[in-house]
Design a binder for these strands. Sequence first.
RNA 1: GCACGGGUAGCUCAGUGGUAGAGCGGCUCGUUUACACCGAGUUGGUCGGGGGUUCGAAUCCCUCCCUGUGCACCA
Length: 905
Amino acid sequence: MSETNSSSALSKAYEPAAVEARWFLRWSEEGCFRGDETSAREGYSIVIPPPNVTGVLHLGHVLNNTLQDILARRARQKGFEVCWLPGTDHAGIATQTRVERELKSTTGQSRHDIGREAFLDKVWEWKDKHGGIIIDQLKRLGCSLDWERERFTLDTDYSEWVGHVFCDLFRKGLIHRGRRMVNWCPVSLTALSDEEVIMKPQRGKMYTMRYERVDQPGEFVLISTTRPETLMADVAVAVHPEDPRYRDLIGGHVYRPFPREAIPVIADEHVEIEFGTGALKVTPAHDKADFEIGLRHNLPVIDVLSPDGHINCPAVPELHGIERFAARKRAAELLAEKDLLEKEEDYENNVGFSERADVPVEPRLSMQWFLRYPSVESAKAAVESNEITFRPERWRKTYAHWMDNIQDWCISRQLWWGHRIPVWYRKDQYENLTAAESLDPAAVAQGLLHVATEPPADPENWVQDPDVLDTWFSSWLWPFATFSKVGERSPALEKFYPTADLVTGPDILFFWVARMIMAGYEYEGRAPFRHVYFTSIIRDIKGRKMSKSLGNSPDPLDLIAKYGADGLRFGLLRIAPSGQDVRFDEKQIEEGRNFANKLWNACRFRQMAGENANATDSPATPDAPSVFETDILAKLDTLHTTLEAAYSEYQFNHIAQHLYDFFWRDFCDHFLEAVKGALRDSAPAPRRARVLATIDTVLSRFLPLLHPYMPHITEELWEKLGFGDGTPLMSTALPTGPACSATRDQAAAAAQTAAAIYETASAARRLKADYQLAQNRNVRFLLRPTDSTTPPDESTLTTLALLAGAAAIEPTTTPPDSQAPRLLTPLGELAMPLEGLVDIEAERTRLGKELAKIESEIKKASGKLSSESFVSRAPEHVVEQERQRLAEWQEKQREVSAMLTAFSG
RNA sequence: GCACGGGUAGCUCAGUGGUAGAGCGGCUCGUUUACACCGAGUUGGUCGGGGGUUCGAAUCCCUCCCUGUGCACCA
C-alpha cells in the first residue's frame, strides 16, 4: 500500500454516486476512452446499435450497453486497441411525429402549414436540444465509448454514404420505382417495409353477406368478409374452379350491394373451397391477395380509402368521409337495412399493425421505391459457414429462413425527416414520369432523370423526389460509414473494420443485422463483424414485456441513484441468461449493490489492517503459506481460467456468478475468517506479513477481473489500496501467470484440508446453535480422529476454534462421555461436552436421522454394486468410485452407530 | 400451420449421462471492532405429465400439456 492513499480511509458503506462521477471524469481526462487508429496494438472495435435520437434509456439499453462495455473493457485489459463507437440514428417516423405533435400543440400548425424547409429547421432544433439525452445517460452507466467519435445518421459525411449507396444500387439496377401493394400506415401517412408490420390476433366479426345473382333475381350468393367497409371497391366475386356449388355461376354476374353494380364471377385457384362460403369478394385496391387476383383476371382497381383511413366513396354518401372502423359498423348496418346481411359472427383473425403508430396498416397500392438486396449469397454463406457466429446459435436458422425468402425492401417513406431520395425529375416531364406504372432506368440516359449525390447543375429545371429513405437504409451502413468518408480508406477504417462483436436484440435481426451483413459485403467486401451476441428481452416479474403504457418499466436512472451504476450492471448481468428472456426483479439489483458493498468492506478490512511494511521490505517471507493461503490462491488462478473460458463463450451470467461466488464465499466467508487470527497484533509478525501479502495478491488480481462488470468501484479501490501507482485500473493490463506457486497436487491437498476445516467448523456451529449457544464463546469441543482421519495439528485446532467461535477444540483419543452431543465431521468425531443440559431424546433423533440418511446412501450404492449388469457394463472408474463411496458411507455408518449407542445407555 | 426456445425449491435462475445446486424469500438466533447492503443455523424439489433408450436419465429419443419467439396466414 502506498502512503499517499492510506490516509483516505474508506467509509463504512460504499457510496457510489460521488465515486462514479469522479471516475467518469478521470477516465475522460486521461483519454482512456479513445481508440487510437495509429497504435501498434491490434484493433478491437464495436459499434453501438445506434439508439433513436428520441429515445431515453431503458433497461434493454442498460443490458445491451453493459455487455458491450464489458467486452470493450476486457479487450483493453488484454492489450487491444479498443474503439467502441457511439452514435444515434435519426428515427424518421418517431422523430417527425414527435416534432409534429409539439408543433400542433404549441402553434396549432401542421407541418404542411409551415412547409418542408421550416419544418426541418424545427426538427433539427429539437434534435440539438433533446437528441443527446440517451448518449448522456450512457455515460452515467460508465460506458467506455469513444466519445469523440460520436456519429449521427444525418451527419454530412454519413449522409453522403447514404446517397452514394442509393445511386450505386440504382446504377446496378437493384433499385427501382413502381406502383405496388405496400403496407400503408394511415396515421404516419407513409409506406412501411414488411418488417415494420406486426401481426396481432384481433377479435372481430365475420360478416356473411348476400350478393344477388344478375341472371336469377331473388337468388343470392353468400360471401363472408371481415371488412364490409371495402365492398364498394369489389370488382368481382371469385370461386374455386373445382367447386361444384358454384360451377354454373362462373362467367355470370352478381350485384355488388352498394353502389349497386353488376360484377363478374370469376374462377381462381386462390380461393379455398373449405373456407367460409367458398365465395370471395375481390377487392384489388385493399387486399394483397385480391390485387394478385385482379392482375390475373385483368380487373379494374377501385380505391375507396383515403390515405388517412377514411372512406372515399361519394357514390355511397352514408359512408363517405367516415373513419374506416366506424364505416365497418355502418356498412354492416346498411347491409342489414337492405336485408343483405345473412349473419354476423364473432371471429378472431390476425391483423397487421404499424410498429411505430400501433394501428392496423392498410394494404395500399402506391408508387414506391424498392430495393432488391445486394450480396445476398455472401451474406447467407457468411453465417452458414460461421465466418460470422451467432449466439445463441439458434438465430442462424431464423436468419437463413429470412434470407431464403427474402423480399424486395420498400425503402421510400412519405416523410420529410430523413435522407431525401437523390433523384431529380425533369420538371416538364414530372407528371409523365411519376404517373407511369414504373420508372424506366433508361430515362437517365435520355436526360429525363438525374440520379446522383449532387443536385443537377440547373436545379430550376428539375424537381426532386419528395420522399425520404427508410431510416434502416442508413443504419445498415453503420459499421463502416462511421469510420470513413465515401471512397476513403481512412486509418480508422483500416484499424477498426471489420468490427469484432455486435451486441443487439434478436428483434432487429432482419431490420438491421442481416442488412448490415449485406451492406458490409457489398461495400467493404467483408463481413462487418465476426460475432453477433443476441441479448435477452427484459420482462417484468410477471413475464410481461416492459412498456410505457403498462408502467412496468423502471427508469434506469432511478435504479442507478438507488443502487449505483455498478450495482445495476452487476445485478442485471447476473440474471441475464444468454438469449433467454429475463424476468426483471429489483431485488436482483439490490443484490448487485450488496455485492459492491461486500467488496468495499473487505477492502476496508484490509485497509484497517495497516501497511505491510514487512512484506514491502522483504517480499520473500520465510514462513510457508498456510493451507488457507495456498487454497485461496489456487482458487484465484482457477477463477482466472474459468473466466477466460466463459468469456470466449460469451457466458456473461456465468462470469458474474463465478466472480460473486469466489469473492463472497471463498474469499470472505472462508479465507478471511480463517486468517483473522493471523492479523491480530499478537500474531507473529512474519505470519501476519505473509497473510497481508496474500490478501493483497488476491485483491490486486480480483479487482481487474471484476473491473469490466463493476468499473467504478474497482477503480476506486484500486487507487485507495494503492495498487496502480496512479495508473487507472481501466488502462492496466490483466495480470498474467499464476498467483499460486504450489504444485497442482499441493493445491488439491490444501483445498481438501481447508474444506475439511470449514466443514468441521460448520458442524461445531451447528451443535452450538442447536443448544442455543451460538453466541457463547466459552464452549469447548472435543475432537477425536476416526480410523481414516489423521490427528489435526495445533494451528488447525486454533483456526477451528476461531471459526467455530469456541474457547478451544481439544484433541482426544477416547470417545467422549455419553452425555455429549456430537457430529461426525471430516476431521473425526466432534463432541460438545455439556453439563446436564443435554436433550438425550433430541440427540437420538438427530443421530437417528443422520444414520437413516447414511443407510439410504449405502442401500443405493450397494444396490448398484450388487447388480451384475452395473458392474460389468459401467466403466471401471465409475464402478470404482461407487465402491469407494460405499466404503466411506459404511465407515460413517460405523461411527454414527457407535455415537448413537452412547446415548442408548 | 411451419420452425425454434423454455418448463428444476415459494421467487429468479445454474446444472447436457454417474451423490439435485446458488442467491433471494421463510423460520430461529445474533450487533464478538470489514460489512445488518452483515454473520450463523435452518426450512424447502415425485427436475411439467406419460412412454422409451441405458447398468444408470433433470440431462438422450418419442409423445402430450403449458409458455415464449420468429415466419406464414383463409377473405
